[in-house]
Design a protein around this nucleic acid. Sequence first.
DNA 1: TGACAACATTCGCAATTTCGCATATTAAAG
DNA 2: CTTTAATATGCGAAATTGCGAATGTTGTCA
Lengths: 114, 114
Amino acid sequence: MPDSLRRFKAGVFQALGHPTRIAIVELLRDEGEVPVSTIYERLDLEQANVSQHLAVLRSKQIVTGRKDGNQVFYSLRDRILGKVLNLMRQYFQAHLSESLELLNDMKLDENPPK
Amino acid sequence: MPDSLRRFKAGVFQALGHPTRIAIVELLRDEGEVPVSTIYERLDLEQANVSQHLAVLRSKQIVTGRKDGNQVFYSLRDRILGKVLNLMRQYFQAHLSESLELLNDMKLDENPPK
DNA sequence: TGACAACATTCGCAATTTCGCATATTAAAG
DNA sequence: CTTTAATATGCGAAATTGCGAATGTTGTCA
């Protein structure tokens, strides 16, 4: 497998490798097509921040925006990605106990020892 | 869906979001259980570099190392991840033409206009 | 015990990412 | 044409990541 293809794959994974972008993709998976305003209202995020994350997802062709008058409606470009996220949930559940430990560690790291 | 779960998912994706780590995971998927030396020889990488990437994959519970005498044998911790990679392969094939365009763009960006 | 082999970890630095804030773009309304 | 709404983009600082070089650790063998 050529390195260029691996970098492409890695790019897609990296695009999914942020909690906010996961939230956006899951929202699009569940809601279909929504305007940007719905995204930042539902997720309680700043508009500019959501736009930046959408730019990342767009650059990797994960989502598409359809302009309609004043607003832009975003949707997932492929349902397979929704399936992938569902598999990830299975994965999470299959390793529930260890996952919880991991989450614990992550939470501990949030308050770095001063 | 709680934010902690999203961060967990994002963590896994982020771990997969690097060409070298993709290569490692695919190698483990295809070969089963291999010592570290096999990994850096096959992929033509520095030993320390591979160890660092393995540390990332370990921290996200994606791989496990089994110590046997002098060496450490690594393997994928869950076949679900294999499934995820397979789904992603479907995804890449479904969007092959656009993927190639993306690759082209990426290559162009390698020589940034000075 | 000493020397070597297989991995892991630490350090320093450059490159990238993320966020908030400010500003730009585009389209509809008046 | 001016204003306002919806979205995008540019910028600087802080945090994170990736790499090679050096150093640690652990196990084996003599």
